[in-house]
Design a protein around this nucleic acid. Sequence first.
DNA 1: CTTCAACGATCAATATTTTCATTTTCTTCG
DNA 2: CGAAGAAAATGAAAATATTGATCGTTGAAG
Lengths: 223, 223
Amino acid sequence: MKILIVEDEQEMLNNMRQSLEQELYIVEAASNFKSATEKIGVYDYDCILLDIGLPDGDGLELLKYLKKQGKDDGVIIVSAKDSLDDRLKGLDLGADDYLPKPFHMAELNARIKAVLRRRNFDGNTLVEIGNVLIDTESRIIKIADEKIILNRKEYSILMYLIANKTRLVTKTALAEHVWGDHIDQTDSFDFIYSQIKNLRKKMDKATITVEAVYGVGYKLEVE
Amino acid sequence: MKILIVEDEQEMLNNMRQSLEQELYIVEAASNFKSATEKIGVYDYDCILLDIGLPDGDGLELLKYLKKQGKDDGVIIVSAKDSLDDRLKGLDLGADDYLPKPFHMAELNARIKAVLRRRNFDGNTLVEIGNVLIDTESRIIKIADEKIILNRKEYSILMYLIANKTRLVTKTALAEHVWGDHIDQTDSFDFIYSQIKNLRKKMDKATITVEAVYGVGYKLEVE
DNA sequence: CTTCAACGATCAATATTTTCATTTTCTTCG
DNA sequence: CGAAGAAAATGAAAATATTGATCGTTGAAG
């Protein structure tokens, strides 16, 4: 999960970054309008946290730009101004949520989760990718109409790869997300290889495949 | 929830134990200074009921020892002497409450509850996590607005996991905390598995799940 | 006092997850 | 291109976890 923080106050930025990295998001930051536009132009983010009051431009302009480009990154407006008017303007321009400062990090996390959930799974429990259909409620997976059963780890890996769709997932990120933060960095990644092998075997009829990226991690390939 | 009674009068001890076990606490006891120090050194308690007048040492010394060790168990001083001076001394040394003898068991229960609440859940009688709502007063659990009933062990396990939220709980710690000090290290953990299974079944509609960490223990997963 | 249901422990059969030894694949560099 | 070394894949074994069945206890209801 990749998040862009657009925020000019350094301290605020650091707080947010730290909190989000704790939650295992990949965090990038832009501290002004120009840098934000560049990043957005080049990368896709799952969620953009957008401060309205930037030194060199209006955050709302960025939002307009996003939509004009047809990007559909999630956007949460973070603003010191909490006038109803601003709020409405932001949501009108297609923001997903509006969070007035000051706020608790827990609140931010909750909003982000909500946005990610809405976007990744359209609010419903069915996820379809290639010929793979997943009911996230019952954890039932169908490949070409045939039901297959994944165990906990396999399911968790698959969902993480899907959440990051075409993006590259490092082995460290995968380990942290699926196994937790107690894993030893000096460990070998044998346990990942093993699970990936089983997952692949169960998914051999699928049009999506788990591809290794040598020296880095894995990546979902569609078709 | 685990409570240590430090008390030398056998009858008093039995009364307290019975009353507390009725309230579904895990109760352990020490009848002298030495035994109390040992227990405190080895285990963590949610609350310690400390009699001041011990045959082989001053209860207040125990309190000092606790603080020096950096332990933050809750402490309620139970004493026959009700001089203002003693009371102040005790609270000064970091006790959470002071209960003069004689007292009604109901009074003791109320004080314990207050201490536990203050320490574990910031004074809130309601604990909310994911779609799970717990009234620690009545031990009623609601999952997605549906009432469910947990028995003693299940409740105890859940609360311990929640108290440790995202942190990892080893099986030994869990056993020690929920079952008390009579567990044998050479034992299998079958009795834990059994309870975890039941707890999971009752919580299958919850957005929080109990995840096993291979070879170590369990961990609460939110969402 | 008896009966019955819930509780909690134990055991055995399965299933999952990790580990290990080995083989294969990939990248680099001469 | 071809060899060497690093990374990844594989198969099988070992370790651990899950589950369902069973059974003695306990406590509540009648």
